[in-house]
């Protein structure tokens, strides 16, 4: 054995000496771009498929979705059910009347439910299901104000937002499961996919608002009362950051709707109809 010479090993032979942040930022941006492209492509593909399904087919296919089991949010008390049952019938009638100019003469079986919740809210389920909260029904909005909300929900049905979002979400989840990344990297993919989905949701809200404007004009002959609902919920809006919200800001929505109304030549002034006049008809 030759004589041993003391030497210290050379540094950075076994590891890259580049700053990790640079590489990391490039990869994160890459992931976000890929997720964005993936979601836009999925949305396009889903759109092609969903647009081939007629309103009738959608409502028929999902007619067996049980309202109570699907939501689990409805009151179980008989008195509440009886109270809401009459209002549900009138709401159903209102929705059918509002839908008439858009249904191309074909029957769609809507399902309408009133949920015992204090918050002012309404949402659309798959297959032409519409849910309104007790809080919204008790708020004493004008028929025009409630009509706008109903028109907005019909707008979601018209544009097949729920069906598209469900299909897109399902496909995206399958894809993510297929990638099977696991661990903390999945958090980034989930978060960026959720942020992109929120963008789709905001776009859907705008499209439903735009539909609601046309729907309100066709039914009432003017669009007065379009902001009643927004004004009532605006104070509970909170401090949500725009790109992380599922809905556009209320004030922006009101301004955008009024601008659209002016462009389309819809009158922002007109007589507001009383909600009781419509809902009390059945009790007479």
């Amino acid at each position: 054995m030759s004589e041993f010479k003391q030497r210290i090993p050379k540094e950075s032979v076994n590891y890259t000496n580049e700053h990790p942040i640079k590489d990391y930022i490039a990869m994160v941006v890459g992931i976000i771009v890929i997720i964005g492209v993936l979601l836009v492509s999925l949305d396009f593909i889903v759109g092609l498929g969903v647009d081939r399904i007629t309103f009738e087919q959608e409502s028929r296919w999902f007619s067996k979705v049980n309202r109570d089991s699907a939501q689990g949010l409805f009151g179980k008390e008989d008195s509440l059910k009886a109270k809401n049952s009459a209002r549900e019938e009138k709401l159903h009638e209102l929705l059918e009347k509002l839908w008439l100019p858009f249904g191309e003469g074909k029957t769609v079986h809507f399902k309408v439910g009133i949920m015992p919740q204090k918050e002012l809210n309404a949402f659309t389920g798959i297959g032409g299901q519409f849910y309104f909260t007790d809080g919204l029904m008790d708020k004493n909005l004008s028929l025009n104000g409630l009509g706008f909300v109903a028109c907005h929900e019909l707008g979601h049905f018209f544009h097949r937002h729920v069906l598209k979002a469900s299909a897109r979400g399902l496909l995206m989840n399958l894809l993510l499961k297929f990638i099977g990344l696991g661990g903390v990297g999945e958090t980034l993919i989930d978060t960026s996919s959720e942020i992109f989905s929120l963008k789709f949701s905001r776009d859907a809200e705008r499209a439903a608002d735009s539909f609601a404007l046309d729907c309100q004009q066709k039914f009432f002959g003017h669009v007065n009362g379009l902001d009643e609902f927004f004004i009532n919920i605006q104070k509970n809006e909170g401090m949500a950051v725009s790109f992380l919200s599922s809905h556009p800001k209320m004030q922006e929505r009101i301004e955008e709707l009024k601008l659209q109304a002016v462009k389309k030549g819809y009158s922002l002034e007109g007589e507001l109809s009383s909600i009781s006049s419509f809902f009390d008809e059945s009790n007479d």
Binding site: P20, D23, Y24, M27, V28, I31, I179, L181, G182, G183, V184, G185, E186, T187, L188
Partner: peptide, 8 residues
């Protein structure tokens, strides 16, 4: 985190 992204 960085390594799990690198796996992609």
């Amino acid at each position: 985190f960085a390594s799990s992204i690198r796996q992609i």
